[in-house]
C-alpha cells in the first residue's frame, strides 16, 4: 500500500484526476455565479453577508488550485487548498443531509437536482477526493524532505 501511495506515476495520476475535477467543477460555477450564490444560500450554512464573497472566490480557488495541481506546480499549496475546500463541502453537505434541506448541491453542475440519495453520493465522492488530496499533500511534503536530506548529505 505504502509503495503504491508513494509511486511517482500513481501520484501524477491522482493529481491529474483531482486537479481535473476541480477545474471542471469551477467552470460551471464561474459561468453561473448568481445560481452558485443561490446554491450556497440554500445550504443555510453561511451568514448572508459572506455568501456572495464566497460565491466570487470559491470558483477561482478551485480553478487555480486545479490548474496548479495538474501542472504540478505549488503542489503543497494547491493540495492544501483543495483539502480545505473539500472539508468545508463535506461539512456543508452533511449538515444539509441531516437537516433534510432541499438543496441543489452546486457540486459539479448547478443544474443537478438534489435528492437525499444524491447528497449522500456527493458526500462519498468528496470523501474519496479528500483522501486523494491528503495523499498528494503528504507525499509532496515527504518528497521535499527527501530532497533536503539528499542536499544535506
Amino acid at each position: 500500500m505504502k509503495k503504491i501511495i508513494s509511486n511517482k506515476y500513481f501520484l501524477i495520476l491522482l493529481r491529474l484526476i483531482v486537479g481535473g475535477l476541480f477545474i471542471y467543477a469551477s467552470l460551471d460555477k464561474l459561468y453561473h455565479q448568481e445560481e452558485f450564490s443561490k446554491a450556497i444560500y440554500n445550504y443555510k450554512f453561511l451568514p448572508e453577508i459572506f455568501i456572495n464573497i464566497f460565491a466570487i472566490i470559491i470558483p477561482y480557488l478551485e480553478l487555480i488550485s486545479g490548474i496548479f495541481l495538474v501542472l504540478g506546480i505549488f503542489k503543497r499549496g494547491s493540495s492544501f487548498v483543495i483539502t480545505a475546500l473539500l472539508f468545508v463541502f463535506i461539512i456543508a453537505l452533511t449538515q444539509a443531509y441531516f437537516r433534510g434541506l432541499d438543496i441543489s448541491c452546486g457540486c459539479f453542475s448547478l443544474e443537478t437536482v438534489s435528492e437525499k440519495s444524491d447528497i449522500l453520493q456527493r458526500i462519498i465522492e468528496d470523501i474519496l477526493l479528500i483522501i486523494s488530496s491528503i495523499i498528494i499533500y503528504t507525499q509532496s511534503l515527504k518528497h521535499n524532505n527527501t530532497i533536503k536530506e539528499k542536499e544535506n548529505e
Binding site: 472566490i57 477561482y60 480557488l61 505549488f74 499549496g77 492544501f80 487548498v81 499533500y137
Partner: peptide, 15 residues
C-alpha cells in the same frame, strides 16, 4: 511555511 506561502498566493490570486 512553504505551504502557508503557497496557500496565501492561491488565495490572493483568487480574490
Amino acid at each position: 511555511m512553504k505551504t502557508f506561502k503557497e496557500v496565501m498566493l492561491i488565495f490572493v490570486m483568487s480574490l
